[in-house]
Design a binder for these strands. Sequence first.
DNA 1: CTCGATCCCTGGACGC
DNA 2: TGCGTCCAGGGATCGA
Length: 300
Amino acid sequence: MPELPEVETVARGLQRQIAGRRILSVTLGKTDFIDNPETVEKELPGRRIYSVVRYGKFLLLRLTQKENGGETERQSALLVHLGMTGMLSPQPVGEPQVKHTHMVALLDDGRELRYIDPRRFGRMAYLAGERLQEELRRFGADPLEAGLEEFTSRIRGRRARIKALLLDQQVLRGVGNIYADESLWKARIHPKRLGVRLREEQVKRLHSALQGILARAIELRGSSIADFLDAEGQPGEYQRHHRAYGREGKPCFRCKTRIKRVIVAGRSSYFCPQCQKAPRGGRELRVRARERGEGHLKKS
DNA sequence: CTCGATCCCTGGACGC
DNA sequence: TGCGTCCAGGGATCGA
């Protein structure tokens, strides 16, 4: 489950390994996860990958213009979302192709950049110019760059549950299930608490917990819980530091209470019922009041 | 605006 | 051993 730290790890590896290489040709396998397969096949060959960066959970392979002179400046990039099981790495041409290899780009140094993704939950798209800018604008702030003030306004202005907000890529780009649960555990906030109801102190704790955890996870090259491997084929180490995620029934590292698992925002959410107190009242009280005929909420 | 449900997809875990 | 079933999960979409 590549999230921000895993994608950052892959981006750094690819930057080291393939930045500067020219793409000579592209071969696609299954294309149902690619926005515009014909465009990918047509536009990539001839371009140089001048840098690889992370944008939320996307890898951005920034591409040079084709060398046919004098055209307008158009930023272009291949966007790659690894979904659950995506892997992008350069390999020697002779290396046998594993099952579920869906894109092979021949590079000018004799290697091939290969995209492997058994479940095809990922996404790939070639975008340029305004279309690219438009796409990037859809996403929220980078959690590592957002200051406390911006973080606060993005969280406290919303009535959704904090877990849903953390997972919402239009609020913050790059946070997924693991790091949402880990930061809520560290900040001692229940995943069902509403954003608007977080106290200033809690938002501050969450902001700091999230940034600290993401930074540390990047240092440890991400979490390899299923089969995540970086661009060099190496697993990460951060899974050894998980305090909540995947620890149902195991003792909380702070208070020994057993970690619980509930579904919030459609996702498994692991938390300590002792350290992360459930919100009292709120939504539930309002529903009960309405059932008793005390509701006088205006419609829309 | 926010919610839950549903779909996409495959492999791994589990039960028999 | 082999088969069926369930589940994981990010994101899009739809109806409530």
